[in-house]
Write a protein that binds this DNA or RNA. Structure first.
Lengths: 111, 111, 111
DNA sequence: TCCGTTCTAGAATATTCGTGT
DNA sequence: TACACGAATATTCTAGAACGG
């Protein structure tokens, strides 16, 4: 593979989610049309800085929103503050398991 | 040796990349369609001045871009914790291992 | 220290230059109206990543230019064999030793 | 004229911080 | 409160421009 017009953020996100080695931190949702972050703390402190130039969940989420991802609203967070919720799920219509080529359709939101 | 209309920059680049003696500093990529620079520091201070009239990576990169080479963005690079990537990779559709004659097709970008 | 409207890049640059502990890598020029980088290689690999989220001289220089700094052209650095590219000097009219308050006057170039 | 070297800038993406709903 | 967005700064890759051999 030589060149890809997919932004680094998306290519890395795909690799993170698709890598079975890190399924305890981030993995595909049951339907393959979303991804789930487990262990918010470890994910933020170990996996994020491996792929990106920061270790802030907020920055990661900002990028997700920038590219049109949305958070799946949890039915019950147990009354915990959001930053303490260990599980978070995001989705995008073109971020689907087994359909990496669709990444090329994802664009930053402009307005 | 017959005269060649290949610019000195390209001829030297080819020789540098193709020379097995300096593979620890610069060599062909795995597929033979790119070249990789290891040890940015040593490459800059020892190999560059041997072939060119300077020892500045920036000048070298300027020439690469001038001739239409592009940097390969590694999906594994860029992270805070990712290993100190002293490694840089560039490619050009006519810069291929074993196809030195294709160098004649490489032209400076004019615009 | 009270809140400051000085961009992080400038505040960190000042600290780097003014810190006597790292004078072997970066320090004030003789007149106090410029700063000098010694040991380009070590500076890039150790000091830059300590202050910023990268270890690329090119990115550092891009920021310097963005804020209006200029490179001092060495009289003897133009000749061939200027192997002392290990030394680089930059200046800005509002970047002066002992006058940290002037940093507030430095703005990004807009055009 | 062409090519090479240097310094600076353009443009796209990435990171941070704060605001709006 | 929780989620999303605006805007400013930062990082990367490539290009413009001046100069010289």
């Amino acid at each position: 593979m030589v060149t890809s017009n997919v932004p680094a953020f998306l290519a890395k996100l795909w690799k993170m989610v698709d890598d079975p080695e890190t399924n305890h931190l981030i993995e595909w949702g049951d339907e393959g049309n979303s991804f789930v972050i487990h262990n918010h703390g470890e994910f933020e402190q170990t996996l994020l800085p491996y792929y990106y130039k920061h270790s802030n969940m907020a920055s990661f989420v900002r990028q997700l929103n920038m590219y049109g991802f949305h958070k799946k609203v949890g039915i019950d967070s147990g009354g915990l503050k959001s930053e303490h919720v260990e599980e978070q799920e995001f989705y995008h219509p073109y971020f689907l398991r087994g359909q990496e080529h669709l990444l090329e359709n994802i664009k930053v939101c402009i307005r």
